[in-house]
C-alpha cells in the first residue's frame, strides 16, 4: 500500500507545474483582471464590452481550472466530471434567458 501511495505521489509531483509557473499564472490573472477593470471605464459599445469581458473571464476561468486545479495535467475523467454538467448548465442558462426575453415569442 505504501509503495502504491508513493508511486501515486511521484506521478503527481512530476505532473504538477512548479511554484514558478504558479506565480506566472497569478501574474497573468492579475493583469487580465486589471485589463477588465480598465475596459470597464473605456469607451465601448455595450456588445463589444460584454464580448471582451466574457472572453477574458473565460480565459481566467480556464487558467485556474487548467493550472491551479491541474485539469490540464490530470486524468481526463476529472475534466469530464466537471465540464459535462458545466456545459449542460450553460445551455440551460442560455435557454432560460432566451425564454424570459422576447426572443422566442
Amino acid at each position: 500500500m505504501a509503495a502504491q501511495h508513493d508511486l501515486h505521489h511521484e506521478e503527481h509531483t512530476e505532473k504538477h507545474p512548479s511554484p514558478r509557473r504558479y506565480i506566472q499564472i497569478a501574474v497573468v490573472l492579475c493583469v487580465v483582471t486589471l485589463i477588465e477593470f480598465l475596459i470597464f471605464y473605456g469607451n465601448w459599445d455595450s456588445a463589444t464590452m460584454t464580448g471582451i469581458i466574457l472572453l477574458l473571464s473565460g480565459l481566467k476561468f480556464l487558467l485556474v481550472v487548467g493550472y491551479y486545479m491541474h485539469l490540464k495535467f490530470d486524468n481526463w475523467r476529472f475534466s469530464a466530471f466537471f465540464f459535462f454538467p458545466f456545459i449542460i448548465m450553460i445551455s440551460i442558462m442560455v435557454a432560460l434567458m432566451a425564454l424570459f426575453s422576447n426572443l422566442t415569442r
Binding site: 483582471t33 477588465e36 477593470f37 470597464f40 466574457l54 473571464s57 485556474v64 486545479m69
Partner: peptide, 23 residues
C-alpha cells in the same frame, strides 16, 4: 480543488454580474 472552484465562481460573478452588469 474546492477553494479554486470558489475562486472561479467569483471570476464568473465578477465578470458577468459586476462588470457587464454595471457597464
Amino acid at each position: 480543488l474546492y477553494w479554486h472552484f470558489v475562486d472561479i465562481v467569483w471570476i464568473v460573478i465578477f465578470g458577468v454580474i459586476y462588470l457587464v452588469g454595471a457597464f
